[in-house]
Design a protein around this nucleic acid. Structure first.
Length: 564
DNA sequence: AATCCTTTCAACCGCGCTCGC
DNA sequence: GGCGAGCGCGGTTGAAAGGAT
């Protein structure tokens, strides 16, 4: 849609706006007290000229003086805005280029709604422009039920966000630390992102500490890049760069709707129920039912997002970057940029028929992301132990009790994963790499179609036995899980209370939180413990809690550490 | 042609931060 | 330390253009 530029507007100004700002009636008229009523509304060419003249003479700043010295009936604020957004030299006008769009997306994934800071990275562009652009993009994508971020961006955001999680123990979000924010928390490397090259599954080595986490998803992307399968779109996971997890309630949990593509893998280093082999479509397809059975990992934002139906509702998408996922966004194929329109279009078909989830699967209803979380965490915990022991034995058999229940692990190339195993990872042994490289994979055959037969697979010396046969989901278990793991249940039950959870009870809770804490690494874990110890109202002592993100009030799942 | 709806953009508003007094 | 001015930022609003019906 072509829209009149400011210049165009000025040339076609309404009659009542062409007059001198000093003489025109209306908003700028003097009131009965003789005080100047500051004019509001669109600027006229004459006003622009006056303002420009003023700035030429006096320079920027001291905007309140503009009115006094120039006779312009505009408040200083308005002048500054006009100057910054329209009159300032070197302003770029016109549509964003594809490159700019990519940059914006990347920046937003890292910064969230920090328009001004984003603008700093886009010469000639204003924060307002970017903000408007983003908002329209959000709306568009929201309508289309699409994710905001391409997977690579998500990965980067996670990585970078994670990196900036905590710097020297300082709270990056604390006020009055702009420099700190700039250089640490929100740092945008001059050397930039991996330009959203989805099919590359590229892992940045610049931030090795999280490469082990990124890798799985990146590989998934790689593997699925050309696939016609659902489920390749990794979720905008976390926006750690925005807030520290412990203070923000930012959840690493994001819901996927149709497909089970919420990246636990990204948040906790778990791998995913996708076969990395892009050619093996059937395999992937077969996985889906199982994935679905895991509840679709839906995070309920007041609604029970059905994993089987795309959320087209207008959940307010005020996203700090990677915080939110429209449930309908999942189950999409990632395709390379051009972003925006092209991105908008590459996910037009939320999971449907063959991919309908949840209804008949092991999970009678989509108990949601927390469901998955519980099971993943449990699985993790158990698996982690196995892996640990394996370090010595390297031969143990993992029988993840609930893994099959929650998500099948990606049987993708473990060796390749190892390539990204970075010993320097702050997440250390607990993270994806160690876990996945050693214990990873429950094969793709852990799909619903395969789950009737026990499956044992050996990956990198680790026997993995999928649970299917020996851990069938009995009605009791179903009920139990539904009761305990649904977000609603979590919110309302005693589950959040220490060890007093009903049903699942404290044991599993501890298992879960312990696993999470372990995954988060000592550093974050201790953070959470501190927070738990602080006992703030928003920070229950342990477990998971649904709250709101402090910077956007979006519902979010917050993880608490296990209490001693 | 008229009307309604959607999209885009400019501008306003409120809040919070910094700085000087 | 308190206060106010100046300023920046992010969210929201409203007008206008274009598209759809």
């Amino acid at each position: 849609m072509s829209r009149m530029t400011n210049e165009g507007k000025d040339s076609v100004l309404p009659k009542d706006q062409i007059e001198s700002p000093l003489t025109e009636e209306g908003n700028s008229a003097r009131n009965v007290n003789g005080q100047t009523n500051l004019k509001k509304g669109p600027w006229t060419a004459a006003e622009d000229a006056i303002l420009m003249e003023y700035v030429k003479k006096h320079g920027e700043g001291n905007w309140n003086a503009v009115q006094k010295h120039s006779g312009l009936s505009r408040c200083g604020k308005s002048c500054r805005l006009r100057w910054a957004n329209h009159l300032r030299p070197n302003l770029k006008k016109g549509a964003f280029t594809q490159e700019e769009e990519q940059i914006i997306i990347e920046l937003h994934s890292k910064m969230g709604n920090k328009w001004a800071r984003m603008a700093a990275h886009l010469p000639g562009r204003t924060d307002n422009e970017i903000k408007n652009y983003w908002n329209t993009r959000i709306k568009r994508r929201q309508r289309a039920g699409l994710p905001l971020y391409p997977p690579e961006v998500s990965s980067h955001a996670y990585r970078d966000g994670h990196r900036s999680f905590k710097i020297g123990g300082a709270d990056c979000r604390s006020k009055g630390h702009h420099d700190h924010l700039l250089h640490n928390c929100y740092e945008i490397p001059d050397v930039t992102f991996d330009r959203l090259k989805p099919s590359q599954g590229r892992i940045s080595n610049s931030v090795p500490e999280l490469a082990d986490i990124i890798t799985p998803s990146a590989m998934l992307m790689k593997g699925l890049g050309d696939s016609s399968q659902y489920g390749s779109f990794s979720s905008p996971l976390i926006h750690h760069g925005q807030k520290r997890l412990r203070e923000s309630s930012t959840s690493p949990l994001y819901s996927g709707s149709g497909r089970n593509d919420f990246s636990f893998s990204e948040s906790f280093g778990l791998s995913f129920p996708f076969d990395s082999d892009p050619n093996d479509i059937n395999k992937n397809q077969q996985q889906q039912p199982l994935n679905d059975a895991q509840g679709g990992h839906t995070l309920s934002y007041g609604n029970n997002f059905s994993a089987s139906k795309p959320s087209t509702g207008a959940v307010k998408l005020e996203l700090p970057s990677l915080q939110y996922i429209d449930s309908g966004s999942w189950g999409i194929i990632y395709s390379p940029p051009p972003l925006l329109e092209s991105v908008d279009t590459f996910i037009q078909s939320p999971p449907t028929a063959g991919t309908t989830v949840g209804s008949n699967s092991t999970s009678p209803r989509n108990s949601g992301l927390l469901d998955a979380l519980l099971h993943e965490a449990k699985a993790l915990s158990g698996a982690k132990n196995h892996c640990s022991s394996e370090k010595s034995s390297n031969s143990s058999t993992v029988t993840p009790d609930d893994i099959a229940d929650s998500s099948t692990l990606n049987a993708c190339d473990a060796a390749e994963w190892d390539n990204y195993n970075d010993p320097l990872s702050p997440l250390g042994h607990t993270t994806a790499t160690s876990f996945l490289s050693k214990c990873t994979p429950i094969s793709a055959s852990g799909s619903s179609l395969d789950e009737q037969k026990p499956h044992i697979e050996t990956v990198t010396g680790c026997e993995i036995k999928s649970e299917a046969a020996d851990r069938a989901l009995t009605p009791e278990r179903e009920r139990e899980r539904d009761t305990i793991t649904s977000p609603d249940a979590l919110l309302t039950s005693d589950w959040l209370e220490q060890g007093s959870g009903s049903g699942y009870g404290g044991k599993d809770q501890v298992v879960m939180t312990g696993a999470i804490a372990a995954l988060l690494g000592d550093d974050l874990s201790s953070d959470y413990k501190q927070m738990a110890a602080a006992g703030t109202s928003s920070a229950p002592s342990q477990g998971w809690v649904l709250g709101s993100c402090p910077w956007n009030n979006m519902p979010a799942v917050c993880q608490m550490s296990e209490l001693p």
